[in-house]
Write a protein that binds this DNA or RNA. Structure first.
Lengths: 170, 170
DNA sequence: CAAATATATTTAGCTGGCTAAATATATGCC
DNA sequence: GGCATATATTTAGCCAGCTAAATATATTTG
């Protein structure tokens, strides 16, 4: 997790700039601010979910399964939550043990397993998601609708800049 | 790492709202957007640093040591980069092996070690930081100075909202 | 001054990522 | 039909976090 506590102050930044003239202080502050705040949000999410014995990964898997009542293959879960199949095997293992999902062989493809949410799993989501959504509403409550739109626009510009930077192979 | 690939579309969100009426769709979109983009930036940073055989943690440690030429204790490094002392022991181990830092007993406190950056370590930073700062400038280049200020303001409102939410123990 | 407490670091063992290789099954192409 | 290739999953082994307990040294206090 990104968690710089000891951020440079103005004096430190000035010194850095003499050593590294390409340093754009406002750009760095913007970037640091983004990663810092979002890191805090991420930690907060982890702590909230931990109270329900869930990790981010398990939580996302349950949500994906709720959206797909016919079940999903392990590989689809891996792709949908951005981890490898090997990792997803472990996540599925944990959720199975907790009784939150089922895993059955796919009648269409005997290589594959179809994973589906159980009543217990849905009950857990029905308990966690209302709190989760209430928290998210509270976290963003300081932004009026216009500001939320603004933030999303600015973030998408960053996403574009990131994409550009990568395609320029910097 | 936060990495939801399969975000809900409008139809899925509408369905969710009927099940969970407290769901504020724009708030959720704002929050998801923030964590998504910053997750992408984080992955990008990891990949960039990996090309120089550095992790985020090692990188931050080297930067802290550059800012503190007289060296820092293991506990100070742990605190400054947001990990436990136990974890920092491992990070220091790796940096020692790579010849980027030194570790000597503190003459003032024989329980402690003082860690300092070596010439090799500084040379590595002198190679990595210019690229790093150039990349950050490029990533944020789509935002003019006013927009950068705006983004920072909006982010600090989120930080405030997060703090409020936590102190309300939601 | 000696005992209790606090601080600095390390060790051991856990968790949850990862990749690469193994296994099983499907699919495509002669 | 049968071989080559592709896909789905698991296993094994690595890395980097974490906490709790161990060790060593400082500091405080009766």
């Amino acid at each position: 997790m990104f968690e710089i506590i000891d951020l440079p102050d103005k004096a430190a930044l000035a010194k850095l700039t003499t050593r590294y003239p390409m340093l754009d202080v406002p750009a760095l502050e913007t970037w640091l601010g983004l990663l810092r705040i979002s890191g805090d949000c991420m930690n907060d999410l982890d702590q909230f979910l931990a109270r329900h014995n869930l990790s981010q990964r398990k939580f996302f898997v349950l949500i994906l399964l709720m959206r797909n009542p016919d079940g999903l293959k392990v590989s689809q879960l891996a792709e949908g939550t951005g981890v490898s199949c090997a990792t997803m095997t472990g996540v599925v293992e944990g959720l199975l043990k907790a009784g939150l999902i089922t895993r059955e062989t796919d009648p269409q493809d005997r290589r594959a397993f179809v994973v589906a949410i159980t009543t217990n799993g849905q009950d857990l989501l029905d308990q966690v998601l209302p709190q989760h959504y209430t928290r998210i509403k509270s976290i963003t409550a300081c932004l009026d609708p216009g500001e939320q739109k603004q933030l999303q626009t600015l973030l998408s510009k960053i996403a574009f800049g990131l994409h550009e930077t990568r395609s320029r192979k910097l």
